[in-house]
Design a protein around this nucleic acid. Sequence first.
DNA 1: GACCAGGCACATC
DNA 2: GATGTGCATGGT
Length: 216
Amino acid sequence: MLSGQLNDIYNMLYGSFGPQGWWPGDTQFEIIIGAILTQNTNWSNVEKAIANLKSEKVLTPAKLHKLNTNKLAKLIRPAGYFNIKAKRLKNFLHWFDESYNLRPKNLEAVTTDRLRNELLSVKGIGPETADSILLYAFDRPVFVVDAYTTRIASRHHLIEDGVDYHKIQKLFESNLPADVKLFNEYHALLVRLGKDFCKPTPKCDDCPLNELPHNA
DNA sequence: GACCAGGCACATC
DNA sequence: GATGTGCATGGT
């Protein structure tokens, strides 16, 4: 059964790496900004960008909403794609202002499905970013799928190549209990495995998952 | 210097 | 509907 296999993988990863302490961020707002900035980008670069926003004291909804887009782009420069990401942050803030008055608290009462759809309607927020925000900023039981998740699932024959985001997400969500803490840790552990072992090339020989019986 | 990193929107066929 | 491309910095 898949649920058993997914459990074995989780236990092996947790045993190997321990708790990952995600999401790295002090506030819901910082998590949201980080989720957009980390698109296709190494987290260490995002940290530099966030440090810039903090040192300029603009890491609040109101301040970022007011900040000039070019100025914002300069501050987030280390995160890469800074022009497009500045626009994406602005798109998010525009929606956040118009619909929720820039208050994270106003999002708490919104149902997960509705919030997800509204986030997806913001230009620059796709499935992974939306789900990261739902899980890590708002504690909704949504499984986040990213490049690491896809690569690991494919390499360990949980899915076939070319399977879309929603199907991979469903694989995890329908075979695991809808538990925020579990989804939080599971995704973080998959990223950890991806960073340390499951790289694009060369394929990994000493991956901890290779010791699992179904991967022998 | 090549390759990679916690995507997404858009153009083109 | 599938496939290709631009966006960009910083670490290995």
